[in-house]
Simulated scan of single mutants.
Amino acid sequence: MSGCEQTRERFSDSECTEDEPRRSRIGTLRKKAISCSSKLTHPLKRKGKRRIDLPIPFIEDVRDEREEKIVSTLRQELLNKHLLPPRHDDYHMLLRFLKNTEFNIEKTVTAWEEMLKWRRDFGTDRIIQEFNFKELEKVTRHYPQGYHGVDKDGRPIYIERLGKAHPGKLMDVTTIERYLKYHVQEFERALLEKLPACSVAAKRRVTTTTTILDVDGLGMKNFSPTAANLLASIAKVDCNYYPETLHRMFIVNAGIGFRSLLWPAAQKFLDPMTIAKIQTLTITCIAQVLEPKSLSKLLEAVDSSSYITWK
């Protein structure tokens, strides 16, 4: 997130002074980025589209008029049922849940209500401030993952090196419950901090991420019962409570064994919409152009400078 983070740190505002804490500056940026959700202004030349003028300068938000109408209908339905807390009264969040149910209002209301209950029970609204994942350094040693740069459209890139993961050693330094809390905490940070910062950098509304899974060295040793339970828990949270936040996923270094054995097994944990966004590339090493035909697909979305240092 180097580019986005630098932009966020440089962002100046009359409400924030140089000596204010970093958290205060991020909070101000987050509030301004989220507050754009209900403002409609000039129609675009393209039929059925509207451009939204945001309170942060130079950010464009293009919306489909048909989607706006159904989001408005959903919003009123949630208000009538007292299911729309102010912090979640956001156009793009409502739209994500609608897309996940193929714009079925009744199913969306049910999914939304379940999400609110989960957030209350899990303590999600307070997890950034209250949860301390003190074992992070040890965890990333046994499960290398994290955000690294942005793609060519300004979306944050999330990278996991699954082939380097050691589930047994991972459970020696943490638990599934604590890792899941860390996962949710990072998701909340991405939505509340990274995406607004990337929106400022890209000068348009950024609402989704790009994921790269490096499966080099991945084998059955990585798919222990513990790993399966952890993957299932993460998939449930992502699919049910953070739908439609993935723009696309690239699986790199995928050999024959992965395609024939591991990938079919992994698909059982994923919903069809997520699977449709995944491209599996056979790349021996994405830091070197060894498979030009496969690598070109990745380079269409990700600049080489965004991942060269990661390898």
Rank of each mutant, 00 (worst) to 15 (best):
L230T: 06
P156H: 08
E15G: 08
E113Y: 06
H42A: 08
T309L: 02
T210V: 12
P272F: 07
L98C: 03
S2L: 11
P57H: 03
V206P: 07
G48T: 02
V215R: 10
D64N: 13
L298M: 10
T175Q: 11
W118S: 07
S224T: 15
I286L: 07
R248H: 12
P43Y: 07
V71R: 11
L262W: 04
T284C: 07
K47P: 00
L290E: 12
K81R: 14
E20H: 10
I127T: 02
T209H: 08
I105G: 09
Y241T: 05
V139G: 04
V206A: 13
I234K: 14
E244K: 10
I159D: 03
T207D: 15
C4W: 08
K194E: 10
P196M: 13
L94A: 06
A235R: 02
P225R: 06
R259L: 10
K81W: 01
S294L: 09
I127D: 01
T140I: 11
L162S: 11
K164H: 08
L94K: 04
K99G: 00
T245M: 08
K107T: 05
E186C: 11
R96I: 06
L295T: 07
V150M: 05
L83K: 05
T110L: 10
E15A: 07
E135K: 15
I34D: 13
K293F: 12
I52D: 05
T208C: 05
R51C: 01
A276S: 11
T210L: 13
S12W: 02
E114S: 12
H142Q: 06
A266R: 05
S224A: 02
M171Y: 11
R155A: 09
L116F: 02
L290A: 12
R23Y: 01
E135D: 06
D303V: 05
T124I: 07
Y147G: 11
R75N: 08
D64S: 06
G27R: 12
Q129W: 05
L78M: 10
L262H: 08
L44S: 09
K169T: 09
I278C: 09
L54Q: 03
D303S: 15
R189L: 15
A235N: 03
P272N: 05
D90H: 13
K277L: 05
V302L: 00
N229F: 04
T101E: 09
Q129M: 03
I212R: 00
V173Q: 06
A287H: 04
G48F: 00
T41H: 14
I56V: 12
T208R: 14
R66N: 00
T226G: 08
C239S: 12
F103D: 04
I283S: 04
I70G: 01
V200W: 01
K81G: 07
L261T: 12
E60D: 13
E193P: 00
T108V: 02
T282L: 08
W310I: 08
L262A: 07
P196S: 14
I283Y: 06
A301S: 14
G123I: 11
E60W: 00
I56M: 02
T175Y: 08
L162E: 03
N240S: 15
H92G: 00
T124L: 02
L116N: 09
Y158N: 13
L95Y: 00
A33G: 10
F122K: 12
Y147P: 07
